[in-house]
Nucleic acid binder design. Sequence first.
DNA 1: TATAAGATTTACT
DNA 2: GTAAATCTTATAT
Length: 190
Amino acid sequence: MKLSRSFYCRTDVVKIAQELLGKYLMTNINGVVSGGLIVETEAYAGIYDKASHAYGGRRTSRTEVMYMEGGYSYVYLCYGMHYMFNVVTNVKDIPHAVLIRGINPTDGIPIIIERIKEKNVTHIFNGPGKLTKALGIDKNFNYQDLCGNKIWIEDRGIMVELKKIKTTKRIGIDYAGEDAKLPYRFCLDS
DNA sequence: TATAAGATTTACT
DNA sequence: GTAAATCTTATAT
């Protein structure tokens, strides 16, 4: 079943990031559905997190969607070539988000092969830029309602054991100083 | 208007 | 291990 608004609107972004492991991220592009099991996430705790675009309460046209209530998507282009997909969480005016870093494709695999032009897509994707490419996510997916029918997250009844969740420091944000070492990254051990 | 930097990936030394 | 690719956004003139 599709996750409801109440799942995203809770106040503990770290817990939500952890609970998103084992769920399914799905996209529907012109009627073509693809998606997979979420195996890697990162929490971005808004104004207290130097790694977040909304650190210190910064509010621009780009970060505006993070100030929405939970359950919306925040997609943006990084380094001119990679799209990142985030799930906005918490209540209105609190810019918390969860970055989806990795999925294990389960649905629409032929479509995914066509998109990334690789034969082997049954393995876990090893980067946020690659997974958005695989699911066809681009700037058109920014500001989408995750309770809608274009992009959403499903719970298929998978129970994730705590011992299968690996918690590590985040990656690729060395510029954030001490905050780069916070244990906000979650991996599903398979 | 102009400039600098970035939640990355890939290829090359 | 290091560097290039590449373009939007944010911040400064």
